[in-house]
Write a protein that binds this DNA or RNA. Structure first.
Lengths: 137, 137
DNA sequence: ATATTAATGCAAATTAGTTGCATTATAACA
DNA sequence: TGTTATAATGCAACTAATTTGCATTAATAT
């Protein structure tokens, strides 16, 4: 499938390759952040044999292009997700590791307060909740 | 220096060692989260030569004892800080990597909303802001 | 078709974190 | 004050995550 992101990249002079399109496709059709190794495994399972190095390089490239975002969570591995979706946060089960997206209505005040008290040029934030999911309780 | 945490551990039957007391002391007197390697470097600099393995093991132990907390931030390395301080969040400069603590008044509504919409047993959350600090602008 | 160079694969290196095992040292107690 | 039990340590080797160099392949413009 050829997505808007892919067309945009092509317009900028970058190439449309199997690795690029399948990684993009996977991230676009997954509703929670993925790690490099999980992307690697999923692609292998569906018959796209891509080297793990390529995945790391592609993720770095997509980050630079601001097509994806880095999500710091509780473990050592970094997670990635498509940017530009409805603004949301994450809820992670510390028992099974599953991650869910959450949309919160009431964060406006928090961000305002933050911008008032800080002299930093704040570009983004990450908010994650940790607990046990119903299945693991 | 012998701290309350150390005395509490002694009361529980754990020993007071140089590694334990210096790691605890460092975390207690630092106002931002530290990584295992940064702890290692700082201790070396002040003349406490502790093996990095010991630091990892001690951090794991202090986590189990709920004396410290794990802070997921933007980079690959995990950060740790003393628990039980005034509830706060973090502001990280993506240019120089410095981290600052932030106390926000207006997060109550957010947490209430979160507990209302979720069926998870939520134990903690982490909120971090990322941007450029005045020095790096 | 061909040329340019972006993208890839492989191997090797680096960095973060973990594990096994023998040794050391803290603290309890005879 | 010694003796003892075992918590804590150090070292080496290991695993997992990520990065780098370099030669090769392949996407696109001409």
């Amino acid at each position: 499938m050829i997505t808007n992101h892919l067309l945009l990249l092509q317009k900028k002079g970058f190439r449309m390759t199997q690795a690029r399109s399948s990684i993009l496709n996977l991230l676009e059709n997954t509703d929670h952040p993925l790690t490099a190794t999980s992307i690697h495994k999923i692609l292998k399972r569906i018959g796209v044999s891509t080297n793990i190095t390529t995945i790391y390089r592609e993720l770095e490239f997509l980050l630079e292009q601001k097509i994806i975002e880095k999500i710091p969570l509780f473990d050592t591995e970094l997670h990635y997700e498509i940017s530009g979706r409805t603004h949301h946060h994450h809820l992670m089960c510390t028992s099974c590791g599953s991650i869910q997206n959450i949309v919160l209505q009431s964060e406006k005040g928090l961000l305002e307060e933050m911008h008032n008290i800080s002299t930093y040029d704040i570009r983004r934030h990450s908010l994650a909740f940790f607990g046990t999911c119903p299945d693991c309780t």
